[in-house]
Design a protein around this nucleic acid. Structure first.
Lengths: 195, 195
DNA sequence: GTCTATACCGAGATAGAC
DNA sequence: GTCTATCTCGGTATAGAC
């Protein structure tokens, strides 16, 4: 039987507390970026005492890192893409990365926003792009300067997310993602094929 | 003759002081973004008392706006581009906007970084893109969905700046801007021509 | 018009009671 | 494991002397 207890208390289950804090942290960091997200607000969101946040994660920085550890298997993603016909690489990469980065609640998007003013976050995004695209992406690409063109692929997709979710350019914001993918995919495909 | 005076004093010329503060503000905002740039640091950079910064600009927010007022004649820029052969639009736009946005000391770059966590700054970038590209750019573009494709042009160029200057992707960072322009310009051209 | 001194607030973090 | 109380720091902004 559940004993009644004051609102805001969550005694007994550290793992539940940890998870609640992590979820709240992702929301706050995602919406406000690293600097403007406060431990106090995260704690309030998680219905937990601010001191508990520090107790579990030691510092704001470590909380940020913990909240953004990505359960991604980079090999698996690109292996799935490589299994399809090369003519579809552009469309697959476009819809996959836009879908992942452009979801405003996702850790990846949160990281991207934070990266603007936070070298830790920038390094994490760089790592993510490196392991998921640059390192294992060469099989997808033909022609000269493959690394440069892979980075341009990443650039374009990131730019679309920034323009849509952060700058709020009107057409990009209003259109469903599929419309955008339809126009962009051939361009990405072109980068992959080396002109 | 110049009388000797304590370091840090700059008596007598308010306009000099204003300009020194504005220059320092651009540097600090550009390097650290809105939140991490502090009035104390800006004042120190400008060799001026922190209170003077407030005296001249009232609030940090107003200082930010003043530091980023862009002396741009949007009509003139695009008129110059439109005067050249249409086949060169892509290259001109690419080198112009990359040059402007990618210069880490420029107000435009500073705005872009700040936009990640600051709706004021985001609105200013949106306004800049709107007046310089979306509003007057239609003569440069043919084919369906011109607005969407103009926004995609902006997206790609912004993404390159983000990837190069903020995320620090290796190839983009090391290559001179001309190399990048050479690869990107045909893609931009393609957006302008509607496939 | 300029600077000194300081008020005031909210942040991250700590100590120690429970 | 959790909460209360508190410390310390550095931020923006103000009052008032010069």
């Amino acid at each position: 039987m559940v004993t009644d207890r004051p609102v805001g208390r969550r005694p007994g289950d550290p793992e539940t507390t940890r998870q609640a804090i992590l979820a709240a942290a992702r929301t706050q960091f995602g919406e406000r970026g690293f600097d403007r997200a406060t431990i106090r607000a995260i704690a309030a969101d998680a219905d937990v005492d601010p001191a508990l946040v520090i107790y579990h994660f030691r510092t704001k920085r470590e909380l940020f890192v913990a909240a953004h550890e990505l359960p991604v298997d980079p090999g698996a993603i690109l292996a799935a893409i490589a299994a399809m016909p090369p003519a579809t690489y552009g469309e697959q990469i476009t819809s996959m990365y836009l879908g992942r980065f452009a979801a405003p609640g996702s850790p990846t998007f949160s990281l991207l926003r934070a990266a603007a003013t936070n070298e830790d976050a920038a390094a994490m995004v760089r790592g993510f792009i490196h392991t998921t695209l640059l390192e294992h992406g060469t099989p997808l690409i033909t022609g000269p300067d493959p690394q440069l063109r892979l980075e341009l692929v990443a650039s374009h997709l990131i730019g679309i997310v920034v323009a849509r979710e952060i700058l709020g350019l009107p057409e990009l914001r209003e259109r469903p993602l599929q419309d955008i993918v339809a126009v962009v995919a051939p361009v990405i495909q072109r980068y992959l094929q080396g002109d």
